[in-house]
Simulated assay, not measured.
Amino acid sequence: MRAFLTRHPRLAALIAQLGKFGSVGAVAYVVQLAATNLLWEAAGMDALPGQVLGTLVSIAVAFVGNRFWTFADRARTGYGRETLLFLAMNGVGLLIQLGCQAFSVYVLGFDDPVSRNIAGNVVGVALGTLFRFFSYRTWVFPERPAAEPGRPTAEEEPPARRP
Rank of each mutant, 00 (worst) to 15 (best):
T77N: 13
D112M: 13
F133W: 05
R144A: 06
A75Q: 12
S135P: 02
R76C: 12
V123N: 05
P142G: 06
E82D: 02
F110P: 05
I96Y: 05
A75N: 08
G99I: 03
Q97G: 08
A119V: 07
G124T: 11
D111K: 12
N121E: 03
S104E: 12
V107H: 15
A126D: 08
V122F: 13
P142I: 13
N117M: 14
T77W: 11
Q97E: 03
G93M: 03
F71C: 09
L127M: 04
R151N: 01
E82A: 10
E82H: 07
N117S: 10
F86M: 10
P113W: 11
T138Q: 12
T153D: 02
G80Q: 01
T129E: 11
V140M: 10
G128F: 00
E143C: 12
G93I: 09
N121L: 04
L130A: 12
P145R: 13
G109M: 06
R116I: 01
T129L: 12
Q101P: 06
A88N: 02
R81I: 05
L108P: 01
G150R: 01
F71I: 07
M89G: 11
R132V: 09
G91N: 11
D112G: 15
D111F: 11
T138P: 05
G93C: 03
G93Q: 01
G80Y: 02
R137E: 04
N90A: 03
V105K: 03
F86N: 10
Y79P: 09
G109S: 09
A72I: 15
L95E: 08
P113H: 13
F141M: 05
L94F: 12
I118M: 14
Q101M: 13
V140H: 06
G99T: 03
E143F: 11
F131K: 00
A88C: 01
G150W: 01
E143R: 14
T153V: 07
V140Y: 06
G93A: 08
V125H: 02
F133R: 02
P113I: 09
